[in-house]
Design a protein around this nucleic acid. Sequence first.
DNA 1: CGCCGCATTTGATTTCAATCAAGGATTGCG
DNA 2: CGCAATCCTTGATTGAAATCAAATGCGGCG
Lengths: 279, 279
Amino acid sequence: MERERTRLPPSRRFLPNSGGQATWPPGFSWFGTDPDCREHGGLIPPIQMSACDTCIVRNRAICAGLEDPEIAALSTMGRRRAVTAGEPLIWEDDASLLVANVIEGVLKLTTSTADGREQIVGVAYPSDFIGRPFGQTSAASVVALTDARVCVFSRNDFDRYAREHPELEHKLLERTLAELDRTRAWMMLLGRKNASEKIATFLLDMSERLAETGCAPHPGPAKRFTLPFSRQQVADVLGLTIETVSRQLTKLKSDGVVALPTRRDVEILDRGALVTLAG
Amino acid sequence: MERERTRLPPSRRFLPNSGGQATWPPGFSWFGTDPDCREHGGLIPPIQMSACDTCIVRNRAICAGLEDPEIAALSTMGRRRAVTAGEPLIWEDDASLLVANVIEGVLKLTTSTADGREQIVGVAYPSDFIGRPFGQTSAASVVALTDARVCVFSRNDFDRYAREHPELEHKLLERTLAELDRTRAWMMLLGRKNASEKIATFLLDMSERLAETGCAPHPGPAKRFTLPFSRQQVADVLGLTIETVSRQLTKLKSDGVVALPTRRDVEILDRGALVTLAG
DNA sequence: CGCCGCATTTGATTTCAATCAAGGATTGCG
DNA sequence: CGCAATCCTTGATTGAAATCAAATGCGGCG
């Protein structure tokens, strides 16, 4: 999709993988390709077979720790859905009709002005919860950045179920509080950091978020990773223009702080320098 | 406090009402001065007399709707505390030791960089909940903007109590989700709006937030209100400098959009113009 | 393999807000 | 009442990032 710097409101048509929205690199997996890397390992599935039993985020999403009958109940309410890169799942200001768990892939949460400026206000990774429970409308759009799979629930069903299951609500509360902390840290970046600090902070954040596979006990920040963002999307995360993002990255490359083997790949050569720059 | 644009980290000493931190204007009340304006009106207090029974935010804070024995239990855990303007209640990155309900007054939530730049990431009004439950550290400092009264709980006590009272956790979840929505809307402002749009959005937001007395059924946005912020603090909310805030306000005044009778008072003369400017 | 479409980079220029620097206006206090 | 402190406003200048404009080169496809 040609990035609009025009003043046109973003249309709602779905352009499947339009305009070079990169599909996820072949062979890449958010969970690693090691077949042993399964959190519920070789355990025999419980009595009732359901999609949840084989769910790769089963032990990290809000479903984690629920008893089998509860999982079974949830399982009947939810359904798997594939979302291709660039495809929207939820629209800003629309009635909040569905909520979901991310199983695989990455999605962006965005808000837009009437004249088409966009700000990415959140990024959802596997096991993250998306959507607005207990509310009439959604404050942000949710659009897939990569091909993704999600486990969707009707918001009404979910709300009702959650109110009857305090343990689930508690997990949701913990997640929401953590997300609020992250969001507030990002406000500092948007309001008070300059372009080079923003880029450095962003790269460090990415190296941490993209390393969280949930498999290795503590993988630590990734030294090398593949961005789920185009340059324009990086700009939309940081409140910058695409040109400024490009120039800052070029500078980091020529200073030997990072290597940029492809458009989407980043290798951190001097983490210390990034930490210093991040302020 | 002389606003630091120096690169010194903010010190932690408490400067009571220092540097012209305005105390709340005499006679001003966040709840209106009409004596009939009490949400539980002339009802006879229940059996057990406690501070909660006369609490002015009793029916708006997360305590609302709790049964009497539960209120009694909470009441024994919490204690009232006065916080004078400029006084900190919680420090960024410190262990999360306490949480609180705001009874009266306004507090700011801030994050700071090592070199002393500050961003206000939230504002707490009466009936709002502050602090970080279910977490080890607090991501933001909390400092009173005006003389304030809060109802404080030990975080440990609160966490334990909340986990046993799903209804309380549900209220906290609803609040946290709403706060996350507001925060994300503010990210759009910080990342994508220009100075004049920021100021217009800010004034409209203030006129709504400061009108919420909880007394009149639907008071609507206030036409005239008193800012709980100094110019520097407005700048810290909007990610601007004090000079830019001043210039933008002067412009709105000379354009006849607002009147600024005192440093802290704002009267909106042309709401439509503000809405247009807010974008 | 070579071409085409776009995303990205790079360069030139502009502009908006930050910075630097005084000069007023409130407020509180002696 | 007058002074001091400091908050706020206003002006001049700078500067960082946006904008405008044009190459460049990657990636997909025939």
